[in-house]
């Protein structure tokens, strides 16, 4: 699963939904993989408003990835002002959001500490019946 996917997920327990600590989930013993894809400036520009920037910053720190800027970059910062080519900021975001995936490991809820396993890139959010 892409790091980007974590922007849309939280703990599956009903009792955790209202707690801000149930998002983002915290990766544990995550084994990462890079899958190269073509860079698309429009996609990055249009995904930015969908991101919880604070959560993305937390995730990059926890995964030991290069730190994100303090504030989300402006659309202008995504291209080189002279050449119009992708800027380094755009390239870094592309690599983080579109190319970096968690292959295996676990995702821990910051509220209840429950861990969800990730295997072969697929996270399992099914709960044992006593926890539903």
């Amino acid at each position: 699963m892409k790091i980007l996917t974590l922007n849309f997920l939280c703990c599956a327990r009903k009792t955790c939904k209202s707690s801000p600590a149930s998002f983002p989930l915290h990766p544990k013993e995550a084994s990462l993989e890079q899958i190269e894809t073509d860079i698309n400036a429009l996609f990055i520009k249009n995904i930015l408003p969908r991101l919880d920037w604070e959560a993305m910053k937390t995730l990059t720190i926890e995964l030991g990835l290069p730190a994100l800027p303090t504030e989300p970059p402006s659309p202008e910062a995504l291209e080189d002002p002279d050449s119009g080519e992708p800027s380094q900021t755009l390239k870094d975001l592309h690599q983080l959001l579109m190319e970096t995936s968690i292959e295996s490991g676990a995702l821990r809820c910051g509220n209840c500490d429950h861990e969800y396993a990730v295997k072969e890139g697929i996270a399992n959010f099914l709960l044992p019946s006593h926890m539903v």
Binding site: K2, L4, T5, I122, N124
Partner: peptide, 11 residues
């Protein structure tokens, strides 16, 4: 964004 195993939209 891939797929995840989930009971409906709980996650």
């Amino acid at each position: 964004l891939g797929t995840v195993m989930s009971d409906l939209t709980s996650s």
